[in-house]
Computed example of a mutant assay.
Amino acid sequence: MFLENIVIDAVDPQRLGRFWEQALGTVPLTDDVAGYETRLTVPDGPVLDLCLPRVPDPSTAPPRLHLDLSAGPSQAETVERLLALGASHLDIGQGDVPWVVLADLEGHPFCVLAERDAYPDTGPIAAVTVLSAEPERNGAFWAGLTGWQEYAGTAPLSLRHPSGRGLVLDFFPTAEPKDTKNRLHLDLRLEPGDDAAAVFDRVEALGAVRIGQDWGDLPWTSFTDPSGNEFCFLPARAE
């Protein structure tokens, strides 16, 4: 199994998907009534798809996962470019910090980071920040799922693809209770030969909880991680 998707719930997937495509320089994959999909490839690193499913009423709760974008040497120019694409400044009480907080076209917060030694060779997304009740436990859980390795980042626990390239998963603590579905989540893909039942038993033994759902016959299986953050397993692709 491997990490395949960053999923962002959207009221208008086409409009929001094209914003993120322009913001990140990704390659379009799928554009239909159900959603929008675009691919981020980091040379010699991971390939991740940004998937934007249509969700009529996405959560407006403070996000427990968000994107941190890499601005490289020119943070101000990157911010101006994103504002020109339709992003807006957002005050979430961040105060005087070295990053700029923006909102995408549907109000979801993300950050634009100044150049940092901790995020070399990431591509346009420096990190996905994951808020967790227990960052070390949650990071270890995700390391077991993805095969990503501990990395000397800026969080209590950070993970990175074994190539040492591409975005970083940063696990930070939060004391806030989680009571609504995350608007952003991660998807994993089973590989040919994986025994889905055995994989699901193993991740449940590691602290995942399967989500009971009444949304019909879906091709994915939904869970929450040990901190209650949703994620999904997609079936293996045909060989």
Rank of each mutant, 00 (worst) to 15 (best):
E115M: 10
L169K: 06
G45L: 10
T26F: 12
L67Y: 06
T146E: 03
E136K: 13
K181V: 13
R116E: 09
G139F: 08
L83G: 04
V130S: 11
S70F: 13
W220Y: 15
L85E: 06
F200L: 11
I6H: 01
V203I: 15
G95Y: 09
G164M: 05
G193P: 01
G153H: 00
R54C: 04
D117N: 03
R210V: 04
K181G: 01
A238I: 08
N182C: 13
I125S: 00
L82S: 12
S70H: 15
L105P: 12
G86R: 12
T122H: 02
H185I: 05
G35K: 07
A140Q: 14
G72C: 10
D31I: 08
M1N: 02
L67K: 03
L184P: 01
G166I: 08
A197V: 14
D179N: 14
T60A: 13
V27S: 12
A71L: 03
P56W: 13
V42L: 09
T221L: 13
A10H: 11
S59E: 00
L113R: 05
W99N: 02
P63V: 04
G86Y: 01
P109V: 08
T60N: 07
A155V: 04
A10R: 12
E191N: 13
V11I: 15
I8S: 05
L85T: 03
G212L: 10
L102S: 05
R202L: 11
D9V: 02
D194Q: 03
P73A: 14
Y36E: 06
L83E: 00
G95L: 07
T122Q: 03
R210Y: 01
L190H: 09
E191C: 05
P235E: 10
V130A: 08
L40V: 03
P162A: 08
